[in-house]
Design a binder for these strands. Structure first.
Lengths: 106, 106
DNA sequence: AATATATGCAACTTTTTGGTTTCGCAATAT
DNA sequence: ATATTGCGAAACCAAAAAGTTGCATATATT
């Protein structure tokens, strides 16, 4: 099984779950209430999210609260880093290009 | 078909393609040379990436150069924004907590 | 103790995906 | 002109994923 963060956030329902529990821990049932799918389907998504450590569980009596492991989200940010460099320097490159054109056409 | 950015970057080969052409435009053949798959498989990935506007093509004679549309990558960054807020304030919360502990144990 | 609730898990079905093979088309080279 | 090269598209296949149904288990509630 692949089971990495990128595959985990590929599913729109899972992204919605992540956003939902980002601010406060929730139980599977209350999470499922927000979607048109069955509780079991949500449960499966939760399992996938748990497996790649994007969320964590906390048992409280017979209820299980799921919450986001925000730290893990930083891995996506880390991957984006390489591109952020590009889109930030692209402005500079444009400047350089314009400067070069100015020089050579002189 | 779903075909959104998150689904596009879910595949590791596609992520590698993105990184590969991020700095310079490349033809399907030269891209495929970097992987163990066939040109056609890469071609399919390129189509998916094109469909969600993550990359763009430029015909040059009989060759087609693919390059990254870096702007589109910002959409991922935009989605991360909501979580970045959380993980940034979490530090402050931690600071507050540490401050409180310091105070109370003194 | 009996029942209701919250949940996970396994089996099964249906889509979706990633890949290969084959084909056809357009541009270039001979 | 004819052959070669660079591509995309369609047909097909195997594997994976998403969802459903039907339990099993643990904890509340009465």
């Amino acid at each position: 099984m692949r089971r990495d963060i990128f595959q985990a956030i590929a599913d729109p329902t899972r992204r919605a779950i992540i956003a939902l529990i980002a601010l406060q821990a929730m139980t599977p049932n209350s999470i499922a209430d927000n979607f048109n799918t069955t509780r079991q389907a949500v449960s499966k998504h939760l399992r996938i999210l748990t497996e790649c450590e994007l969320i964590k569980q906390e048992q409280k009596g017979r209820e299980i609260y799921y919450s986001l492991q925000i730290e893990k989200m930083k891995e996506i940010d880390k991957w984006l880093e390489q591109f952020r460099k590009i889109w930030e320097t692209r402005f500079n490159q444009l400047d350089d290009l314009l400067a070069t054109i100015k020089k050579t056409t002189k």
